[in-house]
Simulated scan of single mutants.
Amino acid sequence: MTFIRETVITSLDPAGNVHVAPMGATVVAGGYILAPFRPSRTLDNLLATRCAVVNVTDDVRVYAGCVTGRRRDWPTVPAERIRGAVLDGALAHEEIEVTAIEDDAMRPRLTCRPVHLVNHRPFRGFNRAQAAVVEGAILVSRLHLLPPEKIDREVEYLSIAIGKTAGPVELEAWGWLMDRIAEHRAGTGNAA
């Protein structure tokens, strides 16, 4: 059985520059399938270095900051067993190596095996606002593909959870997402 886990992938380019990107990682027996769209810095880095780090975080600002372009300079620390970077403050991380590549013009599939797993602190659970921000970040990453009515319906529904359960971190992240949607509609925002 496979399922997708919403994660933050940290990868390095050949020069050692860190790239942080939210990505759904498909969990399969023995590891993950990563399928970044072309063009993608994450894909370029994975193809060049054949390794990355799968980070699990409850700081939803990372998701919102990356997809809106609001913030991408998240602190990292060196990985332990691969040439890579770990999201500082991650709940857990898994260092992975690419073992197979199924090429595709739009979305190659990279099979990855874990080489090291570290739990940094316990996961206390998401509140509904955190889940809404993650869903909102996915929505924002697809603004160019979705009709305005779909965006409005999703935002209206997700706003219920924000209104009921958000703390300061979730409100900040949600604000970034709403600003990005407004910029998209006004035609003033650059793609993140």
Rank of each mutant, 00 (worst) to 15 (best):
R61G: 01
G69H: 05
V62R: 03
R142V: 06
I82L: 06
P147R: 14
R70D: 07
R128T: 12
V133L: 03
V86G: 05
R121E: 09
L87H: 07
L158S: 07
E135Q: 12
L145M: 15
R142L: 01
Q130W: 00
D152T: 13
P108E: 09
G69A: 05
A105S: 13
Y157L: 14
P78T: 10
E102F: 03
L110C: 02
D104V: 09
Y157H: 15
I151A: 01
A137N: 05
A90F: 00
W74R: 08
S159A: 13
R107C: 10
G125E: 06
H144Y: 11
A129F: 02
P78H: 05
E149K: 12
L91E: 10
P122Y: 05
V118R: 14
G89D: 10
A161T: 06
T111N: 03
G163Q: 11
L146P: 04
I138M: 13
P114S: 14
A161Y: 11
V86R: 11
V155G: 08
T111C: 01
D103W: 09
K164I: 12
A85C: 04
V140T: 11
L110A: 02
L158W: 04
E95P: 06
P114W: 00
A79Y: 01
T68D: 07
I160Q: 15
E102V: 14
T111L: 12
A92T: 12
G125C: 07
P122T: 13
A92W: 02
A131K: 12
I151N: 07
S159H: 09
P78Q: 06
R81W: 01
H144I: 08
L146Q: 12
C112W: 01
Y63S: 00
A131N: 11
I82R: 09
A137K: 08
H116K: 10
Y157V: 13
C66L: 03
F123V: 08
V140F: 00
T76F: 00
E95Q: 06
N119D: 12
E149T: 13
A79K: 02
A132G: 07
T76H: 06
T76D: 10
T99Q: 05
L139I: 11
N127M: 05
I151K: 02
V98W: 07
V62M: 02
A100H: 14
I160S: 10
P114I: 14
V118L: 04
F126Q: 01
R107Y: 01
R81Y: 03
H120W: 11
G69E: 04
E80T: 15
G69W: 01
R142M: 04
R72H: 11
V133S: 03
R61E: 09
Q130C: 00
L110H: 04
H144C: 02
G136N: 08
P75G: 09
P108I: 11
G65H: 03
V134N: 03
E156L: 10
R121N: 05
K164G: 01
R124D: 13
R107Q: 14
E156I: 05
T99F: 04
R142W: 02
A105F: 07
I138P: 00
I82V: 15
L143D: 07
H120Y: 09
P147M: 06
R128A: 15
N119F: 05
T111I: 08
L158N: 09
L146V: 11
L158Y: 07
M106Q: 15
A161S: 15
R61D: 02
V67K: 04
A64M: 02
M106V: 15
V133G: 01
R61Q: 11
V62Y: 04
